[in-house]
Amino acid sequence: MRIKKHPILGKLEEKEINITFNGREFAALEGESIAAALLANHIRILSYTEKRQEPRGIYCGIGHCYECRVTVDGERSVRACITTVKDGMRIESQGESPK
């Protein structure tokens, strides 16, 4: 999913850092959003709705729809689309997946 070489924007040169999502370790790039880092690792489901346990992911990308809420280092309901990754960040999806 990562665009390592772009015909106009050139090569990706950001530094690699590590994050965890639901306990698993993943590589992320410095400066990108949590949502972008997870998508680059093929993760689309960021939360499940409370009543019907429906999966939710990135929708608006500008922090308005709140569909991408995740728990970051213990803090609940952080918007993955407008929060930058940091090395060692522990991210967890919110809500319960259907049984």
Binding site: I58, Y59, G61
Partner: peptide, 19 residues
């Protein structure tokens, strides 16, 4: 998940460099 606004797709693609 996988359905998103065109603007979200644009920023992911051109700013974050993730298709």
């Amino acid at each position: 998940p996988g359905v998103m606004s065109i603007g979200a797709a644009q920023v992911l693609n051109n700013f974050h460099r993730v298709n």
